[in-house]
Simulated assay, not measured.
Amino acid sequence: MTSLHLGPNGGLLYCMEFLNENIDWLEERLAPLVKEGYYIIIDCPGQVELFTLNTGLQNAIKTLTDKLHIRLAAVELVDAHLCSDAGKFLAALLLSLSSMLHLELPHINVLSKADLVEAYGELHFNLDYYTEVQDLSQLVDTMGNDAFGRRYRKLSGALAEVIEDYGLVNYTPLAIEDKDSVQRVLALVDKATGYVFAGLADKSPYPPEFVYGAVAADSGVADMWDKHQAQQELKVHEREPS
């Protein structure tokens, strides 16, 4: 930043582009860790340009997944205090959706500091409304209480419709002091990356493509497992003498 006279955002974008030009450096340092079976956590800065506009992070992710065969999941933290402001929460929803489409990874959206949400002001709805991203027209209706909200009400409604049309965004609440909420987030990440099924391919009668191919989606995995198990049981019965 000092030598190139860049600000914080410009410095990060430059570093990401520089990293992509020298991606072999990262590959060489991660390859031994991958070989030894390390669980790799990449802590990214919070500048939204890296996740929505610039392709630097996207290209780095592609290198890690295609060349080193690392199964990655994106975990996006959204501060729960945004729930107390309808406009800010709508912007957070749009950012989460944009990140999901841009990064093209299994994605877990986390509503962090959920235990402090009411400290920032009274919510218009209960917490489930914000985590499950229910009827957003109700959220837009609460934004007409000031001049800014009234002026941009139509735009807010259009953005809400875009978010609902995709139907991809929801949040998992996280309170770092709550062990159960931490375990819940960890379980979602492990399922998204396939880590929860690590080692099962050699021990399980189920085919590897099932064990590793269906874990990125939360919904439907249990149904697929039950269906496959029923098929295996049917084969056993077919082999048994009548």
Results as ranks from 00 to 15, higher is better:
1 M>Q: 10
3 S>W: 00
4 L>E: 11
7 G>Y: 05
8 P>W: 06
10 G>I: 06
11 G>Q: 00
11 G>F: 00
13 L>G: 01
14 Y>T: 09
15 C>M: 10
17 E>L: 06
17 E>P: 00
18 F>D: 03
20 N>L: 08
20 N>V: 11
25 W>M: 11
28 E>F: 11
29 R>H: 14
29 R>I: 05
31 A>N: 10
33 L>I: 08
35 K>I: 09
37 G>L: 13
37 G>Y: 15
40 I>V: 15
43 D>V: 10
44 C>K: 07
47 Q>W: 09
49 E>Y: 08
54 N>K: 05
55 T>P: 15
56 G>A: 03
57 L>I: 05
57 L>E: 01
60 A>T: 15
60 A>P: 12
61 I>P: 02
61 I>T: 09
62 K>W: 06
72 L>Q: 01
73 A>I: 10
75 V>K: 01
78 V>S: 06
83 C>G: 02
86 A>V: 11
86 A>L: 09
87 G>C: 09
87 G>M: 12
88 K>E: 00
89 F>L: 03
90 L>P: 04
90 L>Q: 02
90 L>H: 02
91 A>Y: 07
92 A>Q: 00
96 S>T: 09
97 L>W: 01
106 P>R: 04
107 H>C: 11
108 I>C: 06
109 N>V: 03
111 L>T: 02
112 S>A: 13
114 A>E: 00
117 V>G: 02
120 Y>G: 00
123 L>M: 10
124 H>I: 04
126 N>T: 14
129 Y>L: 09
137 S>F: 11
139 L>K: 04
140 V>S: 00
140 V>L: 02
142 T>W: 01
147 A>P: 06
147 A>Y: 03
150 R>F: 00
150 R>L: 05
152 Y>Q: 05
158 A>I: 15
160 A>D: 00
162 V>E: 10
163 I>F: 01
163 I>R: 03
164 E>V: 06
165 D>E: 11
166 Y>G: 03
166 Y>T: 09
168 L>T: 04
168 L>E: 12
172 T>R: 04
172 T>E: 00
176 I>E: 05
177 E>S: 12
180 D>N: 13
181 S>D: 02
182 V>K: 10
183 Q>W: 07
187 A>T: 15
190 D>Q: 14
190 D>A: 15
193 T>D: 07
196 V>E: 01
196 V>F: 08
196 V>Q: 03
197 F>W: 10
199 G>P: 06
200 L>W: 13
202 D>Y: 13
206 Y>H: 13
208 P>W: 00
214 A>D: 04
215 V>G: 11
216 A>E: 08
217 A>T: 10
219 S>G: 10
220 G>I: 15
220 G>R: 13
221 V>D: 01
222 A>Q: 10
224 M>D: 07
231 Q>T: 12
231 Q>W: 15
233 E>S: 09
234 L>E: 12
238 E>P: 07
239 R>G: 07
241 P>T: 09
